[in-house]
Computed example of a mutant assay.
Amino acid sequence: MPSPLELLASNLHDVFGNRDAAARRRAIETIYTDDVVFTDPEESVTGWDAVEAKAAALLDGAPAEFEFADDGIAYTGADAGALAWTFGPSGSPVARGIDLITVRDGRIAELRTLLHE
């Protein structure tokens, strides 16, 4: 069973940072519960298809050189975790945020993204 730290890394890099749609979908089905709730400043959505649509829209709308990177240390507990990140060209991020996860049965059941203002 993956740890919250492993889930945080996979969420950032294998899902939201992955431009390969088939590999991204495999990661989604592996690391999230099928009823995952994802909340960002725009909305709250539920399920694998909704997470896939959010990741695809973000990546499809961003220049090819934009990437996600860890931004500091992760914080974890038995069933929760938090990881700060940046998004943009390497070394010149245009966005910063933090992902907060709740884990159930070894998968992310809730993902909340907060953005730096």
Rank of each mutant, 00 (worst) to 15 (best):
A50F: 09
F87M: 05
D105R: 15
V15Q: 08
A95K: 10
A27M: 06
P63Y: 08
F87R: 06
F16S: 06
V45R: 14
V94E: 15
T30Y: 00
S10V: 05
E117V: 08
V15K: 08
A64Y: 00
T46Y: 03
D14A: 15
I101V: 14
E6W: 07
P89K: 09
Y75E: 15
G91D: 10
R26A: 12
A50N: 04
R26S: 01
T39L: 05
V51C: 13
I98F: 01
L100A: 12
R104P: 00
R104G: 09
R25N: 08
G17V: 06
I101T: 02
R112P: 03
T30E: 07
L7R: 12
L7H: 11
S44D: 00
L59F: 07
Y32H: 01
S3R: 05
L12W: 11
D79A: 13
H116L: 05
D35S: 13
D99M: 01
T113I: 15
G47W: 02
D40S: 14
E29H: 11
E6L: 09
G72P: 07
L100Q: 09
P93G: 04
F87E: 08
L100G: 07
R112S: 12
G77V: 12
W85A: 00
R96C: 04
E65T: 12
A56M: 01
D14N: 09
G97S: 10
P2V: 08
L12H: 13
S3M: 03
G47N: 01
N18G: 04
P63D: 11
S44T: 14
S44G: 02
G61H: 13
A22W: 01
A69I: 06
I108K: 15
A80T: 07
V94I: 14
R26V: 01
G106C: 00
A95V: 10
L83T: 03
A78S: 13
F66D: 06
R96K: 14
D35E: 08
A53H: 01
A78C: 00
E42A: 00
I28Q: 13
A9L: 14
N11P: 02
V37N: 07
D40F: 13
E110G: 10
F87L: 04
E43N: 03
G47V: 03
R104W: 07
A21H: 04
F16M: 04
P89Q: 10
G17I: 02
F68E: 00
A55F: 09
V15L: 03
T76D: 06
E117I: 06
A64R: 02
A21P: 11
L114W: 04
I31R: 12
F66S: 03
R19L: 03
L114Y: 15
E6Q: 15
T46K: 14
L7C: 06
A27Q: 07
G81C: 07
G17A: 01
W48T: 06
G91W: 09
V94N: 08
D70R: 04
D35H: 07
E117R: 13
I73E: 04
P4I: 11
D14W: 02
D34S: 15
S90C: 02
G106W: 00
G47M: 05
M1S: 13
A64H: 05
V37R: 15
G77Q: 06
A22V: 13
